[in-house]
C-alpha cells in the first residue's frame, strides 16, 4: 500500500528537515554522524514504509497510511565531558542512541500527544585501560508508556529510566550499587532531532554551543519544540487555571533548551 500524496508531502518535509539537521551535525561534529540519520531520511521518503505500533488497546496496527516514523540504530557520539567520570581511569567514552518514533501525521499541528510510540534508548560505553575488565556501561531510556500494559507502578506517559546494566549481562557485578525500575522520571518527549540535540548538549557541549548559533538549526529546533513540547506543556499546565497572577518564573531558567 502506498501512502497518499498529501501525507507523502508531509513526510518529505520531515525528511528534508532531518537531512538539513544531519548535514549540520556533519559540519559541527563530523565523523560520519550524519549517515545514520540518512536512514531516517530514507524511511520518511519511502512511500512503501509505514511503521507498525500498538494502539491503546494493545492491538498491533500496521499499514495505517496516516502513520509515519523511523527506526535508527547505533547513532554514535563521542563523550567529551570525561572529567567527572567514575570509576577513575576511564579515558574514553561513547554514546550510542537507538531510536524509534511512530507518529500520526494528523496530530502534528494539534495540542495532542505527538507520538503513538517512542523508544529512545541510550547506552554509554566507557573504557578503562587499567582494569582487567576494561569496558564499562551505563544506560538510560525514554519511553512512551502504552496504556494497554497494566502495571501497579505509576507510569508517566513519557518517562526516563536509568539502567546500570544496559547490556543485560547476567554476570554483572552490582557491587554496592542497587538497580530498580522505579522511579520512572517524568520527562518531555523527544524525537530524533530534539533527542540528539539533548545528547549533544550533555555529552558534546562545545558542539552544542555551535549548533544553537546556527540559523537553520535554530529554525528546525524551534519548530520541533513547538510541535512536540508545546502540546505536552500546554496540556499539563491546563490542570490549573491561571487566575491572572503574572508568570514571573522564566521558562528558559526551567528549561535551558527552549529557543
Amino acid at each position: 500500500m502506498a501512502v497518499p500524496d498529501k501525507i507523502m508531502h508531509f513526510r518529505r518535509e520531515r525528511a528534508q528537515e532531518l537531512r538539513q539537521f544531519a548535514d549540520k551535525l556533519e559540519t559541527y561534529i563530523g565523523n560520519g554522524i550524519s549517515t545514520k540519520l540518512y536512514d531516517g531520511v530514507n524511511q520518511l521518503k519511502n512511500p512503501d514504509y509505514i511503521p507498525a505500533f500498538r494502539n491503546e488497546k494493545g492491538e498491533l496496527i500496521y499499514n495505517n497510511e496516516n502513520i509515519w516514523g523511523y527506526t535508527i540504530d547505533d547513532i554514535k557520539l563521542d563523550v567529551t565531558t570525561l572529567k567527572h567520570l567514575k570509576p577513575k581511569g576511564i579515558n574514553k567514552a561513547e554514546v550510542y542512541l537507538n531510536i524509534s518514533v511512530v507518529s500520526d501525521y494528523r496530530n502534528w499541528e494539534k495540542i495532542k500527544d505527538p507520538f503513538c510510540e517512542l523508544n529512545f534508548n541510550v547506552i554509554i560505553k566507557g573504557i578503562n585501560p587499567k582494569t582487567e575488565q576494561g569496558i564499562h556501561y551505563f544506560g538510560f531510556h525514554l519511553d512512551r508508556h502504552n496504556e494497554s500494559q497494566s502495571s501497579d507502578e505509576i507510569h508517566p506517559v513519557y518517562h526516563l529510566q536509568y539502567n546500570l546494566n544496559p547490556k543485560d549481562d547476567e554476570e554483572f557485578e552490582y557491587g554496592t550499587t542497587l538497580n530498580l525500575d522505579t522511579p520512572r522520571f517524568l520527562h518531555y518527549p523527544m524525537d530524533l532531532i530534539l533527542g540528539l540535540t539533548y545528547l549533544i548538549a550533555n555529552f558534546h557541549p562545545t558542539s552544542y554551543s555551535k549548533l544553537i548559533e546556527d540559523r537553520e538549526i535554530i529554525k528546525i529546533l524551534k519548530n520541533y519544540q513547538e510541535k512536540i513540547w508545546k502540546p505536552y506543556c500546554f496540556s499539563m499546565s491546563n490542570h490549573w487555571k491561571n487566575d491572572g497572577l503574572p508568570i514571573e518564573w522564566h521558562q528558559k531558567s526551567i528549561c535551558p533548551f527552549l529557543l
Partner: peptide, 19 residues
C-alpha cells in the same frame, strides 16, 4: 573501533565511509 585508533588517510572520508 572503540578501542582502536583511526589511521591517517590521504583523502578526507565521506560521511558514509567508515574510518
Amino acid at each position: 573501533p572503540f578501542e582502536g585508533f583511526r589511521i591517517f588517510e590521504s583523502v578526507e572520508l565521506k560521511p558514509w565511509q567508515e574510518p
